[in-house]
């Protein structure tokens, strides 16, 4: 199909205009609003006690979620690739579930399971509070980020096969040694990619966390909740500033993803 010059440019203009209006203008506008009063004003908004506590809480959640997802994600990926068991198809479907479930439903489901009136509500009586506290937010983030490590590691495991591991066994390596020296180094770039996706999603998760957190400023307010709460408190500028910080994280994640993707396709 050879398209003449004029219609081709017309199509290009339509496509670029759509992207410009829908993506670039709003993002540019936020950046403009954030920095129109100078870096100082932005800095003041980002370093308020509430803001710092939100960042600390967000990072704390990330710091708990990432190692858990790495360890269990590798377990699940290994089971899916190497295991020959009944219900493997079912396990595959479960891993994809979080992609299909609305974040709000994730939050609601956690309240119904772990909340005071939920199935595990008894935990509250022994003093373990899950909902409206850190464990709830961690569980919500774990739910929405669960597929990433599994889905990035699984194809790599498929590709490398198990011959290298068998070779290591014949050379005297036990299970742990084989895992640390052979399996883990072989999947490292896929794993790194999965971790970046997990971190990006964990930083940015809003819907699920908003349901299981009471969003008390300086206590149970993550960065995304801070954006929403400042907006509702009519502190629009503060909201923009916090959003810009999140955008910065997203940008870093995008760059890292490109780097790791190149690495893994080259290796």
């Amino acid at each position: 199909m050879k398209v003449e010059r004029a219609p081709r440019i017309a199509l290009r203009t339509v496509a670029l205009a759509y992207l410009f209006v829908l993506l670039l203008v709003p993002v540019g506008l936020i950046l403009f609003r954030t920095f129109e009063n100078g870096i100082g004003a932005f800095w003041d908004q980002v370093t308020t006690p509430a803001s710092i506590s939100a960042m600390a809480l967000t990072l704390e959640i990330v710091a708990i979620v990432v190692p858990l997802n790495v360890v269990f994600g590798i377990f699940v990926a290994l089971a899916l690739v190497r295991g020959r068991f009944r219900g493997r198809g079912f396990m595959q479907a479960i891993v994809d579930l979080p992609f299909a479930v609305s974040p709000v439903i994730v939050g609601v489901s956690l309240v119904l399971l772990w909340g005071v009136n939920g199935w595990f509500g008894g935990l509250a009586e022994v003093g373990i509070r899950v909902i409206f506290s850190l464990p709830g937010m961690v569980l919500a983030t774990l739910f929405v980020t669960l597929p990433f490590v599994v889905r990035e590691v699984e194809p790599v495991l498929h590709e490398i096969g198990d011959e290298q591991e068998q070779a290591a066994a014949t050379l005297g390596a036990n299970g742990w040694q084989t895992f640390w020296r052979i399996t883990l180094p072989s999947i490292r770039w896929g794993l790194a990619y999965g971790v970046v996706l997990t971190v990006a999603r964990a930083l940015g998760e809003f819907g699920a966390v908003s349901v299981v957190s009471n969003g008390v400023s300086g206590q149970s307010e993550t960065l995304t909740l801070l954006v929403a709460n400042r907006f509702e408190d009519l502190n629009l500028f503060g909201s923009y500033a916090a959003a810009t910080v999140l955008m910065g994280f997203a940008l870093v994640a995008l760059v890292l993803m490109t780097v790791f993707e190149r690495r893994s396709t080259r290796a």
Binding site: Q166, P185, S186
Partner: peptide, 12 residues
């Protein structure tokens, strides 16, 4: 000592 058809070289 075992030698595999497809080498099973430790690629990394």
């Amino acid at each position: 000592g075992f030698v595999f058809q497809h080498y099973a070289a430790f690629k990394h």
